[in-house]
């Protein structure tokens, strides 16, 4: 099955260039480490602000890794091999989404309890945050991947991609910091999956030329 093979291949690629696996998670922790330096507040208020910090850090880490979904394969030509394989492009895109989520968001999810320790977050609060992230982060990855597919051809894509992606992340941010809205996040992820699938498929058709 190419679907499975493609996921394994992307995970291996991330694993071989071992920084890839750790990049998003370590970036996330580094952003969080900066926060106590710029806020002259008591540790208690960090606890209040923690889930907000986490969501901003996640958005930035996902943005940082977007170049690896399609761009690197597009630039070195591996995308050509993938595209003329016997497999429908929609499924290729799905495989890319899944492998990118696994290789970036799972390390993030593992890193969050550790970050929680630094900010003295209780276990149940940590659990809520992790549940929300599991519900919301796939949608953010899908949207980011779709926009990076859409902007494959532009020279300064990584800069101007940010301007397109961040407004699309606003709903995730708003619902992400609310503990009871993991179902809304799940819904947002599903909507963004459908839209990202169409957008990515369409863009790959365009850029194959």
């Amino acid at each position: 099955m190419l679907f499975y093979n493609l996921i394994i291949r992307d995970l291996k690629l991330a694993f071989y260039s071992s920084t890839n696996f750790l990049l998003a998670a370590s970036f996330l922790i580094l952003i969080l480490v900066l926060i106590p330096f710029v806020f002259n507040a008591s540790p208690d208020s960090f606890t209040l602000l923690f889930s907000g910090f986490i969501w901003i850090a996640i958005a930035l880490s996902i943005l940082l890794t977007l170049d690896r979904v399609f761009n690197s394969d597009y630039e070195d030509g591996n995308l050509e091999i993938i595209l003329i394989s016997q497999f429908p492009i929609e499924l290729i895109v799905c495989a890319k989404f899944i492998s990118h989520w696994i290789s970036n968001c799972i390390p993030i999810i593992i890193a969050i309890p550790i970050a929680g320790l630094l900010f003295n977050i209780s276990l149940s609060d940590n659990l809520y945050i992790v549940v929300n992230i599991i519900a919301g982060s796939p949608g953010m990855v899908f949207i980011g991947a779709a926009i990076s597919a859409l902007t494959l051809g532009s020279k300064r894509a990584s800069l101007y991609k940010t301007i397109i992606v961040i407004p699309l992340y606003i709903p995730f941010m708003i619902f992400g910091v609310n503990q009871e809205s993991s179902l809304v996040l799940l819904g947002l992820s599903m909507i963004s999956f459908i839209f990202s699938l169409f957008t990515s498929t369409y863009s790959l058709h365009l850029y194959a030329e």
């Binding site: 690629l13 260039s17 070195d76 030509g77 591996n78 091999i81 003329i84």
Partner: peptide, 16 residues
């Protein structure tokens, strides 16, 4: 799907 295309891009990952 019986075609194999080797283009001008080498399809190589530089860091591997």
């Amino acid at each position: 799907a019986d075609f194999k295309f080797v283009g001008q891009k080498n399809s190589l990952k530089e860091n591997l």
